[in-house]
């Protein structure tokens, strides 16, 4: 890699790190097209490097979000195995299902979530006294308003099913599960947006570890490119959470809906063979 290309990779990954850490996404959906279409890397190198980037994004941002008390670690711990098992199932199912139809169905789900986030106000629930959900009560101090927010989690079963589906999608389509976990937590489970994006950030690192170690052991992680991507993403993942601090939860939710629409548009283009990513 020459100097110009290195600078390009660093910039692209820093951008993916900022967006990913702000919205609880891995950023693979940003970094892979930038590396392949933008900078001319091969797809297989881009995939290996981007998975390392996802871990960097999660580790960098979650360290900050956890210490600010925004991450619901217990909820994350419950959703992680569901996602991982889902992605294993997805990898097997991918052989039997039509990728294009799947991508279109997934895009429809994303669009519906976006519509919901634009139209419906956020509904959070108060602490639950019965059932397993009572262990998942959490609270945080909103960095923008300075107010203490207490919330409970409901519809745990549906949420776990959604994370299984999110894992499935990431196994079948190679799209990170964060994009569906955030709406699942926010829309169904009553987790405030700020806590949902932070918790998703926390989770995606673990989800990416399985894929990353398989690629690493098989020599499919290009060391120099992956490390350059990781450093760029780390820089971005330390900027993103700072930007989010000054954004109101409601605004964050609206921005997230826009990201959802953009991603579903990308997926539709790709399914119709127009994207090339």
């Amino acid at each position: 890699m020459d100097l110009l290309l290195t600078a390009g990779v660093l910039l692209a990954s820093a951008f993916a790190g900022i967006i990913g850490s702000m919205f609880g996404l891995g950023g693979g959906i940003i970094i892979i097209p930038l590396l392949t279409l933008g900078l001319g890397f091969e797809m297989k190198d881009a995939i290996g490097a981007s998975l390392i980037g996802v871990i960097a994004s999660s580790t960098g941002a979650a360290g900050r979000y956890v210490s600010e008390g925004l991450v619901n670690i217990r909820l994350g711990m419950l959703m992680e195995p569901a996602t991982t098992v889902g992605s294993i199932a997805g990898a097997f199912l991918a052989v039997y299902l039509d990728q294009e139809v799947l991508a279109l169905a997934f895009a429809a789900v994303l669009l519906y979530s976006a519509y919901y986030m634009f139209k419906k106000p956020e509904v959070t629930v108060h602490s639950r006294r019965e059932g397993f959900c009572r262990f998942l009560d959490s609270s945080y101090v909103d960095p923008q308003t300075g107010e203490k927010v207490e919330y409970g989690v409901h519809n745990l079963r549906r949420g776990l099913l959604a994370s299984f589906a999110a894992g499935n999608m990431s196994g079948m389509l190679g799209v990170g599960g964060g994009i569906i976990k955030v709406p699942a937590m926010n829309v169904w489970m009553g987790v405030p947006m700020r806590a949902a994006t932070s918790t998703s950030n926390f989770m995606i690192g673990v989800t990416a570890v399985a894929g990353a170690s398989v690629l690493y052991v098989n020599g499919l992680v290009p060391p120099v490119l992956a490390a350059t991507v990781a450093l760029g993403v780390f820089a971005g993942a330390n900027i993103g959470p700072r930007l989010v601090r000054h954004t109101a939860g409601r605004t964050l939710r609206r921005y997230f809906a826009i990201v959802l629409i953009a991603i579903s548009a990308l997926m539709v283009l790709e399914a119709l063979g127009l994207g090339g990513a």
């Binding site: 570890v209 990353a212 060391p223 990781a230």
Partner: peptide, 23 residues
């Protein structure tokens, strides 16, 4: 130098696992 880079990547991959163990 590539070995040093690979070690860094390995440490990065191990970090999410370490945090599960810590929790």
């Amino acid at each position: 130098s590539v070995a040093v880079i690979s070690l860094g990547i390995l440490l990065l991959i191990l970090t999410p696992l370490a945090r599960v163990v810590a929790a």
